[in-house]
Simulated scan of single mutants.
Amino acid sequence: MPTQPPNEPIHFGSAALRALCYILLIVALTQGAYYEALYLEQVRFTELGFTELAQTALLAGASALLLYVRQSLRQLPHVTLLMFAFVFSSLIREQDSLLDHYVADGTWQVLVSLVIVPILGWVVHRRQAFADEFSRYANSASFGMFAAGVLTTYVFSRLYGRSEMWMAILGDSYQRTFKDAAEEVVELLGYALILIAMIELALLARRWARRT
């Protein structure tokens, strides 16, 4: 596979515009969670609440961007496929309650396995090509943002949302809603970072595609 062309410099105006868009995205998500907490008591931080639906939308958008980079721009095919398996599996996992209720218990585990196992096997089979692509992607801002999103969602939110900590903080005033709100809103931020990372990847891949 030919070496990817070097990254083009990003002009200040373009970087500022993107930063503004990302700030507006974070503000919109935060305000949505705020509105949910104040006015949507019946579905507050449940599968039908704003936060959960926004998480689904963010993961769906990130999955679509990965397919765009791989299928339309034809850049980093091995890296984007493995990332798609991870992000799309997270999207399936977010639907666990609905799948368990409307299909069968454990449905999401089966669907995730059907996504991850064949893709992981193919990437392992093509591990040298994957390693070559990853060495290029790892130097990008997109990878740093993606790593931050994963750490926020799958490490920090789990530790921050532990029931024991919130029981200790709130004492007799503890309700599960506090714990759920803390964990779900942090997850929302993590998924937003992942989406931003995929937007940055798509923009980077477009620059690469124009130069090849």
Rank of each mutant, 00 (worst) to 15 (best):
P5H: 04
P5S: 07
P6F: 11
N7S: 15
F12M: 12
F12T: 12
G13E: 09
R18T: 14
A19N: 09
C21F: 15
A33L: 09
Y35D: 15
A37L: 14
L40Y: 06
E41T: 14
E41R: 12
T46C: 05
G49I: 00
F50L: 09
F50G: 09
E52M: 07
L53Q: 15
G61P: 03
S63D: 03
S72F: 11
L73D: 04
L73V: 09
R74I: 07
L76G: 03
P77I: 02
V79S: 07
V79H: 00
A85L: 01
F88W: 05
R93C: 06
S97I: 06
D100P: 05
Y102N: 08
Y102E: 10
G106S: 02
T107L: 06
W108S: 00
W108L: 00
L114E: 03
L114R: 01
V115M: 12
V117W: 08
L120H: 03
G121V: 09
W122S: 10
W122A: 10
V123N: 05
V124G: 11
H125M: 13
Q128G: 05
F130P: 03
F130W: 10
E133R: 01
R136A: 14
A141H: 08
A141K: 05
A147S: 11
V155R: 04
F156T: 03
F156R: 01
S157L: 00
R158K: 12
G161T: 02
E164A: 14
M167Y: 09
F178N: 07
F178Y: 15
D180T: 04
A182T: 04
V185G: 00
L188P: 00
L189M: 10
L193V: 07
L193D: 00
I196C: 08
W208I: 09
W208M: 07
R211V: 12
R211K: 14
